[in-house]
Amino acid sequence: MRLCLPLIALLIGGEATAQSLRPYQIEADAITQSLTGKTGVAARGQAIIADRQRGLCLLCHTGAFPEPHMQGNVAPDLREVVGTLSAGQLRLRLVDIRRVNPDSPMPSFYRNDGLTRVGAPWRGKPILAADEIEDVLAYLLTLQERK
């Protein structure tokens, strides 16, 4: 019994920090399959972006969010950058934009390897979890519909 408890703790711990990322396949310049197998929820994606510390997008991009003076102009508006990219193309750009543009300042949101000196609170974790990527993607797709 003594032995069991730590084991369970270990398993739960491993799950919670999600050290290993879900595998995905890149075809041409897209990831066509959902990372979670499910479709994301646009409203949740919108909330993730609105929270600067979570989504980070507004550090660099502008968008239809409160406090426009607190939004960056390092990159074009989100409503513009979605362009006519397909869901799969957008997914790859969120997961690892450096595959498309190695010099982009935009971080790879779903990556946890090949990084240097990551601070302790963030070590081993991607910036966004798989379901969060799908939620943000769902929100980006609504921007295309509105056009």
């Binding site: 507004l58 939004q71 960056g72 990084l115 240097t116 000196r117 990551v118 601070g119 963030w122 910036i127």
Partner: peptide
């Protein structure tokens, strides 16, 4: 010029290439 951190970006990306641009506010 070394990329560091979870954001994986170097000092030059901001201070050489994007000086004068707005990062957040």
């Amino acid at each position: 010029f070394r990329r560091i951190g979870q954001i994986d970006i170097n000092c030059a990306s901001c201070h050489d290439a994007r000086a004068g641009q707005r990062l957040s506010g």
